[in-house]
């Protein structure tokens, strides 16, 4: 299982110190969700401050992906309140679009658009959603491609890139919308071990700039280095939440201890 391996060694990297503000970026209050009869999220309460980095871990099926996908309404919650950037998520399509404009997301399988070039992938949302002139959008796209260190790939199609490059393009694509919050749904789980590092480095540099981030990941080295708080979820509930040092060195709940003993060697 590659996802349990931590590629970034935790000891020799300095921790990122960008203090979060007291302003709330995302707030989940008593959120419940069911898939048919199955109760997948149970009473989730979470407050994320602006500039805060949260890492969410837990076994498969624990609801961690579902939780962050509720934040940009890729999944609908049935009970409770979710407030993103001061806007409450309801079934109102206008509000959903408004929130999605401000929240970037990266997926496990990148979800790049294979029929468009890298540059077109990046400029699509700025042009159609932000109504930016094409030229400005391309400039912006090249800026972010440079930032993820692959400007030379702009004219290629996603299928011609390696997994790590594709995931960095996906990050750049999300950044082109100048999001206030970034969601990462297991961004390195589908990658070969050699490519995990380049993606994590991109995410670390994003963290250094003070981006509000919610990451579902099993990269514990990344969690230690970047996170302000680590959340452990199981069976649709938040089991434990703590700052990384305490979380890893002194887990409280039995379930957390078991989980950590299995993924840390």
């Amino acid at each position: 299982m590659t996802e349990a391996h931590s590629i970034v060694p935790s000891d020799d990297l300095p921790a990122v110190h960008t203090p979060p503000s007291r302003e709330t970026a995302v707030e989940l209050i008593g959120v419940h969700k069911w898939y048919g009869e199955f109760h997948v999220l149970k009473d989730i309460n979470l407050k994320v401050h602006r500039g805060e980095r949260i890492v969410i871990c837990g076994p498969s099926g624990s609801g961690k992906s579902t939780m962050i996908r509720c934040i940009n309404r890729l999944e609908e919650h049935q009970q409770g309140t979710i407030v993103v950037d001061g806007v409450e998520l309801t079934s109102d399509l206008k509000r959903i679009d408004e929130i999605r404009r401000e929240v970037g997301m990266c997926f496990q399988h990148f979800n790049l658009f294979p029929h468009l070039t890298i540059l077109e992938n990046l400029t699509l949302a700025p042009i159609w959603v932000r109504k930016m002139p094409k030229k400005d959008a391309e400039e912006l796209a090249m800026h972010f491609l440079k930032k993820v260190k692959i400007p030379e790939q702009a004219g290629k199609y996603p299928g011609q890139l390696s997994g790590g490059q594709q995931q960095r393009v996906a990050i750049a694509r999300a950044l082109c919308m100048k999001p206030k919050i970034m969601l990462f749904d297991e961004p390195t789980s589908a990658l070969d071990p050699e490519m995990v590092k380049e993606v994590l480095e991109t995410m670390v540099s994003l963290a250094e700039e003070g981006m509000t981030m919610l990451c579902v990941t099993h990269e514990m080295g990344f969690a230690r280095q970047v996170a302000n708080r680590v959340i452990f979820m199981d069976a649709g509930q938040i089991i434990e939440m703590n700052e990384p040092n305490a979380f890893f060195s002194n887990p409280q709940h039995e379930r957390t201890k078991l989980f950590l003993s299995q993924i840390l060697h």
Binding site: D97, G104, F107, H109, F110, L124, W128, A174
Partner: peptide, 22 residues
């Protein structure tokens, strides 16, 4: 794949933009 829909929606494209462009 479902991921194409999600990728498009997560970027804030409207339904008709998603269908037309992606």
């Amino acid at each position: 794949p479902k991921g194409q829909y999600e990728g498009a929606m997560a970027m804030g494209l409207t339904w008709s933009q998603m269908m037309r462009l992606i």
